[in-house]
Amino acid sequence: MAGRSVVDAGAPLRDRVAETQPSPASVIATEIKGLVARGDRDQARERFGALVAVLQRRALRVAFQYLRNPDDADEAVQDAFVKVFMHIEQYREDLSFDVWFMRILVNASLDRLKARNRQQRFIAPAPDDDERPVEQVPAAEASSERRLLARERWEQVTRAVANLPDRQRLVFTLSQVDQRTPAEIAAATGMSAATVRVHLFRALRKLRGVLGEQA
C-alpha cells in the first residue's frame, strides 16, 4: 500500500476487475450514491445501514486478522464505513463496490496499526496471548483428536502468518480469510496482479516450509 489514494479507485481498475453481475453491496452503494446526489441524505443514511449489514462481518474478519485486537478492528471498520459514506460520490458504479470498500478498509486498518505502533513505543508491550481458546476451533471438528490437530495447525499457521512481511501478510489475509481473487486483491491494494501472485506464492511457500518443519 504505497499510495494514500484511499478513495480513488483509479482508472486501471476497470481493466483488472471484470464483473459480470454487480454484488448486492454494489447495488445498494449505487442506490445510496444516487440518493446523495439528489440531496436526500436521510434516505441515503437509512440505506447505508443495509450496506453496513451486508459487509460488516467480512470487514471485521479482515480487520481483525490484520490488527489482532477486537477494539482496533471495531474502530477500523467504523472508520472505513464512515469514510465510504463521506466519499460515496466518488464511487464508480462500473467497478466492484466490494473491492473499493476493501481498499478503504485495508487503509483504515493500516492507519490504525500505525497509530497503535506509535502508542506502543511509549507503553510496555502486553504479553502475547498464544493460548487461544479451544472454542475458537470450528465446531465441525467434532472429535477431541481432530480439535487438537486443528488447534495445532491454527497455532502453527497463525505464528507463521504473523511473521510474514507486511505485503505478503496483506495478500495472504485477503486471499485466504476474505477469499479474494488475485485480481480483486490487486484492485484493492494497488499492486499489479503479477505482484499479488508473487507475494501470495512467497507467503504460501513460507507457510509450507513452516508446516513441513513441524510435521
Partner: peptide, 10 residues
C-alpha cells in the same frame, strides 16, 4: 483450518 478458525475467532 486457519480460515475456519479465523472466522470463528472473529
Amino acid at each position: 483450518a486457519y480460515r475456519a478458525a479465523a472466522w470463528a475467532e472473529v
